[in-house]
């Protein structure tokens, strides 16, 4: 290696070329979407009943999933960050798993648990008459399964970073554990909570693999936007592009809104 000082030009050029190629690689598909269909056609496609239904269903499913993630994820994040229970490391690994698991595997696993011949599905059906697969509830569960970890991990990180002295101060002032969480802990982690919730919601909105496996594909009941995009690809490509553009716009808006949280 003969490293000549004062000639960084070539190295910079190589880095610049690769970086430029990367930008083109990421930008080109988006440009492709934009030029594929005329704007008027996009509006016409988005007004179609099937698209409207997918849009409505996606909002319902993703918001329910975000709500469920909050309900279950917040206490879980707190337990992982604060309570030294046995098997905590294992619990954290299990919770993180859906983030790296192929979603279709998640869907298969959900069937094995909540399907009619699954661990819990049989008792659910015969005991309560509840059959989960192919219902909107199943789509919510599938979305929660893959999306909740984003909330849990973000909030747990924030809780770990919190100085316990402030909570101890609140305790000496007579505040109950619940009041401390409400008045000291939650306000302190609010930026992370908002960011985690937004990531969780975005992931739920984009969920495909676990949903189609566990919840099936039925317009108005389990056919969320990503499923509609996939189906439309084969019989109405313009519709697929229009739906994709809508999802793209939502993602961009979310990214812009989160800038403050991630790049402060």
């Amino acid at each position: 290696m003969s490293l000549k000082p004062g000639r960084p030009g070539h190295a910079h050029l190589a880095v610049g070329l690769l970086a430029g190629a990367a930008v083109v690689f990421f930008a080109l598909p988006l440009v492709g979407l934009l030029v594929r269909v005329a704007p008027a056609e996009v509006w016409r496609q988005l007004a179609a009943p099937a698209v409207q239904e997918a849009l409505r269903l996606s909002l319902v499913v993703s918001l329910c999933a975000a709500g469920l993630s909050l309900l279950l994820g917040l206490p879980l994040a707190y337990a992982l960050a604060r309570l030294p229970f046995p098997g905590r490391g294992l619990a954290r690994a299990l919770v993180t798993l859906p983030m790296v698991l192929p979603p279709v595997v998640g869907g298969t696993a959900l069937l094995a648990a909540f399907g009619r011949r699954g661990l819990l599905g049989g008792p659910l059906e015969h005991g309560l008459g509840v059959i989960l697969p192919y219902t909107t509830a199943a789509a919510v569960l599938a979305a929660t399964f893959v999306a909740a970890p984003f909330l849990v991990i973000t909030v747990e990180g924030a809780l770990r970073g919190l100085d316990p002295r402030r909570e101890q101060a609140a305790a000496t002032l007579g505040a109950s554990r619940l009041r401390i969480v409400g008045t000291v802990v939650l306000p302190a982690i609010r930026p992370s909570l908002v960011a985690g919730l937004a990531l969780c919601w975005a992931r739920a909105l984009g969920e495909f693999g676990a949903t189609i496996t566990f919840a099936g594909n039925l317009q108005g009941r389990t056919q969320t936007m990503p499923l509609a995009v996939y189906e439309a690809l084969h019989d109405s490509p313009d519709g697929a592009v229009a739906l994709s553009l809508l999802l793209l716009a939502v993602s961009l808006a979310l990214l812009a809104a989160l800038r403050g949280h991630f790049f402060k």
């Binding site: 192919y134 099936g216 039925l218 084969h234």
Partner: peptide, 9 residues
């Protein structure tokens, strides 16, 4: 068709 729970590909 009212009984259909999923449309497979």
């Amino acid at each position: 068709l009212a009984n259909v729970v999923s449309n497979e590909e």
